[in-house]
Design a protein around this nucleic acid. Structure first.
Lengths: 217, 217
DNA sequence: GTCTATACCGTGATAGAC
DNA sequence: GTCTATCACGGTATAGAC
């Protein structure tokens, strides 16, 4: 097990698996496709990661910690900069979304694939609940708490349903299906996360205010 | 080919395929599972529908026409009842979403599975663009046109990105992953479409207004 | 410790016999 | 319309090379 000192080949396996799982889902990818893509033998994936399911989990977990840290830092940072009332809804949602532009900024395509994989998992009735909760619930509940403070008097159910709407909009964005490209005749692009968040932040912030705060600013 | 006069068994095959594809995706389901679930021989699916991919398409198309008609009727109806300015944003989104409660109303579980299948397809980078566009773009563009009239002066890109956010929220709802159940400690339920739409309509309407109309009512 | 070659055996889709 | 045979491909275990 080389989890501690990852070899170049085991990293390549993770990279290829990440991309293929994101595109075709767990069952749509074979270990042989992954091995071929990584330029290694079929058995190497099993050697490093065990069963196919273990590889899938390894891929899903690999970038989760770093991502959660970036988002938590963004939340803390906007909390530190805000007054005694805490950050407002826009600032909180901004902190939730902007770190996801990491892919564009670093130029690391792996991040783009990883985010698409999150979309696959989050939208799946089979994987969704099991896998998302373990890695992301803690962070999400922190954001919901921050939102609760920004929306005094909000009912619990309203907060959760609003988060659900935000999460859905985000998930479809991360999936990068290319549908908006077609629908808009090329005016919008799935790959343009910046534009997506520029619209998603005011859109969802207004939604939260309307539902949780009677539309008051 | 019994597409014209569907036999009871071929309908059962479609029903089971619909449910399994929705849960596990195209690659996560075998023809044998479908046949077993339907209580028929493995080869009967091929006899009626051809290849596995053709069966998948048959399932996806089966309820699309009826669904589109219901949604178009809802749009026409709210357009007929509205004044010279046409229906407002809430009314249009209501017409877009409420027909999807058909599953609960008819008590036909098949509709629930079908909607989850739409979620799977719409969120998939692989299937998404190809399959959704053909069956749903015409209807979606009609709704976007109606929204444009309700939001005078809206920029094209803003309209499309707002629709994208609505579509994402809807998709995650249709997927029924059970995540909101866990996250909310049981206060909200994935299966409660009514509650989902009750929140989604004001949420997304406020978002459209904020982004496309500077928040004006 | 890292990696490759290969073999095993179950399962898949599909065609053809009935 | 049904049953069965085929054959390729899947995940995985093992043996041994470097």
């Amino acid at each position: 097990m080389s989890r501690k000192t990852p070899s170049p080949k085991s990293e390549r396996i993770l990279d290829v698996a990440e991309e293929l799982f994101a595109q075709r889902g767990y069952d749509g990818v074979t270990l042989r496709q992954i091995a071929t893509g990584a330029g290694v033998d079929v058995a190497l994936a099993s050697y490093h990661f065990g069963k196919k399911l273990d590889l899938f989990n390894a891929v899903f977990q690999r970038r989760a910690v770093e991502l959660n840290e970036a988002r938590l830092n963004a939340l803390r940072s906007c909390q530190d900069q805000s007054g005694p009332d805490g950050p407002d809804v826009e600032q909180i949602i901004e902190a939730f979304l902007r770190p996801l532009e990491i892919a564009q900024e670093t130029g690391d395509q792996g991040w783009t694939h990883y985010l698409a994989l999150i979309a696959y998992v989050n939208n799946s009735p089979y994987w969704g609940q099991k896998m998302m909760s373990k890695l992301f619930d803690k962070l999400v509940l922190e954001f919901i708490e921050a939102l609760r403070r920004a929306l005094p008097g909000a009912r619990d159910e309203d907060l959760y349903w609003c988060y659900h709407n935000l999460s859905g909009a985000l998930t479809l964005t991360l999936a990068q299906t290319g549908r908006i490209d077609k629908l808009s005749g090329g005016k919008c692009q799935s790959s343009d996360f910046r534009a997506a968040y520029d619209h998603m932040i005011p859109f969802t912030a207004a939604g939260f205010r309307e539902v949780c705060n009677g539309g008051k600013r």
